[in-house]
Computed example of a mutant assay.
Amino acid sequence: MPDLPVWLLLHFLLAAAATQAARAYALRRRLLDQPGERRSHTVATPRGGGIAVVLSVLLAALWLAMLAAGKDRMLFGSFAIGLALVAGIGWWDDHRPLSPWLRLAVQAIAASILGWGLYQAGTGPWPALTALVMALVLVNVWNFMDGIDGIASSQAAIAASAYFWVLNGPWAALAASLLAACLGFLPFNFPKARIFLGDVGSGALGYTLAALLAVSLQTSSLAWPLLLLPLAVFLVDAGFTLISRMLAGERWWTPHVTHVYQQAAFRFGHVRVTGAYFLLGAVTLMLMLLLSRASLQSALMILPGCGLVLLALWLGARKGLKI
């Protein structure tokens, strides 16, 4: 594990500097998200700032791979390749919109590479398959939920903090690099966005969190349901919004503004909504920490209980917002 304060400062500064460079590049290339009926912002805003987070995490992964040996080196290499694929197709899409099915195909390849890396590391087929599924899920959840200022990067920072706490050695260092990179990017995206993550950033956040979750499931002493708690806020909003759109016969894969956080932002503003989601995420993080010694049986009740509370809040918000 590198010296933690130096490691955090390095990735914070790298992400901040790279975000500034990405903003200048986006303005020069006219890579702007325009306001519209399927957008939550009201002014044209540069996109693609998430390349800064990708750069920071990818450099961390490559450095840690060089320091690692054997199975860890292979797993870090698999993660780095998958991250480059997810970020690469997102970067391309930020420049020229692509078919959602092409993006999904590339994401599936990246998820398979992560699963293969875990399998080669000796985890067995089921953990590898779990990593593959979680990578596909979280890449798209973070893409769905990246719609207002600061929400995606702040939730990723909460989850990165959780996995830093439960992991050890080089994987804890990777979680720390993600946390620092999110904090380096956030001042450019919140409280008033000067640049958006773009698909390059939202997908990379989800993919990195999936890898950290997958390794945590294999190495942490915590009961596995607790490791899902820091992701629960996004999983509930994204998951149940997706289900509701499917049941309504809508084209669920197309952009929309029917998430609770999007509709709430129209009424209350981005800062308040991102702050509310941050508080909910912080509560799930604290629950994970406070209940870290809980047995598997207890954890199997805690996770659904937390999910039901979040679902009740989601349903109440939808009713109040008349979605």
Score class of each variant (00 low, 15 high):
15 A>M: 05
304 P>N: 13
300 L>K: 09
207 Y>W: 09
95 H>G: 15
147 G>M: 02
194 R>Q: 15
13 L>D: 00
164 F>P: 00
298 S>F: 11
266 F>S: 11
115 G>A: 09
197 L>F: 06
140 N>E: 07
300 L>D: 05
313 L>V: 02
175 A>S: 11
151 I>K: 09
254 T>F: 12
151 I>L: 15
278 F>P: 05
287 L>T: 13
259 H>K: 08
15 A>P: 01
105 A>G: 14
233 V>H: 06
293 R>P: 01
144 F>Y: 10
118 L>F: 11
207 Y>P: 04
116 W>Y: 13
291 L>Q: 10
91 W>Y: 13
282 A>N: 02
259 H>S: 08
222 L>G: 05
174 L>T: 03
268 F>S: 11
70 G>D: 08
309 V>L: 14
55 L>R: 01
4 L>C: 07
260 V>M: 05
124 G>K: 13
60 A>W: 01
84 A>G: 10
299 A>V: 06
193 A>I: 00
58 L>G: 05
144 F>K: 09
108 A>M: 13
297 Q>N: 14
139 V>C: 15
269 G>M: 01
257 V>F: 02
264 A>W: 02
212 L>H: 07
12 F>G: 09
305 G>A: 11
272 R>C: 10
246 M>E: 04
81 I>S: 04
166 V>S: 10
312 A>V: 09
25 Y>E: 15
188 F>S: 11
291 L>W: 12
237 D>K: 01
159 A>Q: 08
101 W>H: 14
47 R>Q: 14
296 L>T: 13
19 T>V: 11
230 P>W: 09
40 S>I: 03
186 L>D: 00
80 A>Q: 04
234 F>R: 11
252 W>N: 03
64 L>M: 13
135 A>F: 03
71 K>P: 12
297 Q>M: 14
2 P>E: 01
243 I>E: 06
68 A>R: 04
83 L>V: 04
237 D>C: 03
140 N>P: 08
79 F>L: 14
285 L>G: 06
209 L>N: 03
25 Y>Q: 13
153 S>D: 01
282 A>Q: 12
314 W>S: 03
259 H>M: 07
270 H>F: 01
111 A>L: 06
320 G>V: 10
287 L>C: 11
278 F>N: 02
307 G>W: 00
305 G>F: 07
155 Q>D: 03
227 L>Y: 08
263 Q>H: 12
181 A>D: 02
171 W>F: 14
239 G>T: 05
10 L>N: 02
81 I>L: 15
213 L>T: 04
180 A>F: 07
14 L>R: 06
18 A>W: 07
258 T>P: 00
61 A>K: 01
316 G>F: 05
99 S>V: 05
25 Y>G: 03
237 D>N: 07
213 L>G: 01
294 A>D: 06
245 R>E: 02
48 G>P: 04
147 G>A: 06
200 V>S: 12
7 W>A: 05
308 L>K: 00
257 V>G: 08
155 Q>P: 03
194 R>I: 00
158 I>F: 02
129 L>Q: 07
292 S>M: 13
245 R>D: 04
105 A>W: 12
95 H>K: 10
300 L>G: 12
200 V>P: 04
309 V>H: 00
139 V>D: 02
101 W>T: 12
263 Q>V: 14
310 L>Q: 01
280 L>H: 02
